[in-house]
Design a protein around this nucleic acid. Structure first.
Lengths: 240, 240
DNA sequence: GCAACAAATATGATGCATCATAATTATGAA
DNA sequence: TTCATAATTATGATGCATCATATTTGTTGC
C-alpha cells in the first residue's frame, strides 16, 4: 500500500532506503528541523553513500526534505501558507478519490473501511494516538486505493509525506475528534453517493485539520511576535 | 518558470541534467518508447554518469520515465486509462488554480495572459504548431503562477511532464481549435469570477484533449485488435 | 578575555572502477 | 539452414576515492 509511489518499480537499494525514510517521515520519527547526514545514515544502514544519496535526493525533489544549503539537509518546517495550499489541494484530490471510491466500492472494500474505523475507535479508546494517527492515514489511503487511481495515489502519498512530521508532532493535542468525520464519509460510500463522499472528506480535512492549523498559527505568532508583515499573509501567499 | 518544481533548490549538475531532460520531454524531443542510456547521455553532455543517473532516477520516480526492466529506461507510452485519470486530476487542480488566479489576478498579470493568447493566435496563423503547443502550455502554467500556489505548481509541472511526449506527437492533427477554449478562461479571469474560470478550464481540458483521447483510443484499438493477453505486453495495462 | 585569522574537520558533489546480469552475438552440431 | 549453447558486450547498481567548501575549532595578537 505504501508502495503506491512507484508502481512496478525496479527494486534497488536506493528505493529501499527511500521507503525506509518515507515511513520514518510519515510515522513522525523524523522531527521538523532535524538534520540528516548521508554518511551517517549510510553507516547506520550498512550501505555505501550512493543509495542513501539517491533516496535523499528523491525526497528533496518532492520537498519532503529540504536542502537549506549545499550540505545541510533537514526535515522542513511546515508554514501556515503551505499548509493552507496543501489543504486546498487535498480537498480537491481526496474529494475526487472519495467520489470515485463511492462509485466503485464493492461490499468487501466497504467492509475494509468499516474495519479501519473500528480499529481506530479501539485505538482512541486505548489512548494510543500513534496508532490512531496511522489508522486515520490508512483510511484516507484506502479511499484512493478503492478509487482505482494509481497516479492520484502517488500524488497524495507525496503530499502525506509532507504532513507526516507535522501530524505526529501535534496529534496528541486534540486529535480525538478526528475520527468523527470519517462516519459521514463511510455513510456516503455505502450509499454510493459520490458528491456526498467528496463533501464529507472536505469536512474531514477542514475540521480535522483545524487543530493543526491552530498549532501552526500559534507557532508562527510565537516565532515573530513583533514583525507583522509576513504573518498577515496567511490567506493568499503573494508568491510572484 | 519551468523551475517551479524545486523551489530554492541547491544547484548541482544532476539538477541541470534533470531540467534539461524535462525540457526535452515537454517539448516532445523525446518520443514515447524511446530508450535512454545513462552512459550515452553522460558522454553527450560531457559529465560523468553520476549526475545523469541522479536526473534519470528523479524522472523515473515521478513516472516521467519508466524502467521497463533493470537496465531499460524508456519514455513511457500513455494509456487511455492513465490519460483519463490524469485528465480528472487536471480538471480538479487546474480548476483550483484558475479559481485562485481569477481571485488574485492583477491588471499586469491579465495583460500577460492576453499577450500569451495573442502570440498563440499568431503562431496558429503562421501554422507553427510547435510554438502553439508551447504557448498553450505556458498559458496553463501562467494561471498557476498567478494563483500563487508553488506546491500546486510543482504537482502540475510533473503532470505536464507526462503529457509532453504525447502532446508533441499529436498536436498537429487538429490542435487548431485548442486556443478557442482559452478565451472564456480569460473572460472569467478579467471578471474575477473564480467558479467561471474553473468551469472554463475544465472545458478547455475536456474539449481540447478530445483529439488526444481519440488518438490514444485509436492507438489502443490498433495495438490489440484480437488478442488481449499477449499483445498487451507492450503497454503494461492492468493499472488496477 | 576577545576578536580575527588559520588549521582542521565535516559533508555533499562528482567521477570512476567494479560487479552482476540482461541482451546480443558468435559458434557449432544436427 | 536452424537452433541451442557459449562467449561477448552493454548497462544500471554499488562502493569508494577525491574535491570543494562550509563549519568548527584552535591559535595568536591585541
Amino acid at each position: 500500500m505504501t508502495d503506491a509511489l512507484d508502481t512496478l518499480e525496479h527494486d534497488n537499494l536506493g528505493s529501499t532506503v527511500y521507503h525506509l525514510l518515507c515511513n520514518a517521515l510519515i510515522q513522525g520519527k523524523l522531527k521538523p528541523g532535524e538534520r540528516l547526514k548521508i554518511r551517517e545514515l549510510a553507516a547506520r544502514l550498512g550501505t555505501s553513500v550512493t543509495p542513501v544519496r539517491d533516496a535523499i535526493l528523491r525526497l528533496v525533489q518532492e520537498q519532503a526534505l529540504a536542502m537549506k544549503s549545499a550540505r545541510d539537509i533537514r526535515v522542513p518546517h511546515m508554514t501556515v501558507e503551505r499548509y493552507l495550499e496543501i489543504r486546498a489541494i487535498r480537498i480537491k484530490l481526496e474529494g475526487l478519490a472519495a467520489e470515485m471510491a463511492a462509485q466503485n466500492a464493492t461490499a468487501d472494500q466497504i467492509a475494509l473501511l468499516e474495519d479501519l474505523v473500528r480499529q481506530n475507535e479501539q485505538a482512541l479508546a486505548d489512548g494510543d494516538t500513534a496508532r490512531g494517527c496511522d489508522l486515520n492515514q490508512r483510511f484516507h489511503f484506502a479511499l484512493v486505493d478503492i478509487a482505482g487511481m494509481p497516479f492520484l495515489q502517488g500524488i497524495l502519498y507525496r503530499i502525506w509525506l509532507q504532513m507526516g512530521p507535522l501530524i505526529a508532532d501535534i496529534y496528541g493535542d486534540g486529535g480525538d475528534d478526528m475520527l468523527d468525520f470519517h462516519y459521514p464519509v463511510l455513510d456516503a460510500i455505502r450509499a454510493h453517493d459520490g458528491p456526498a463522499a467528496a463533501r464529507a472528506i472536505s469536512d474531514d480535512i477542514l475540521c480535522g485539520g483545524q487543530v493543526i492549523l491552530q498549532h501552526l498559527q500559534a507557532a508562527a505568532a510565537a516565532a515573530e511576535p513583533a514583525d507583522a508583515t509576513a504573518a498577515s499573509g496567511t490567506d493568499h501567499a503573494g508568491v510572484d
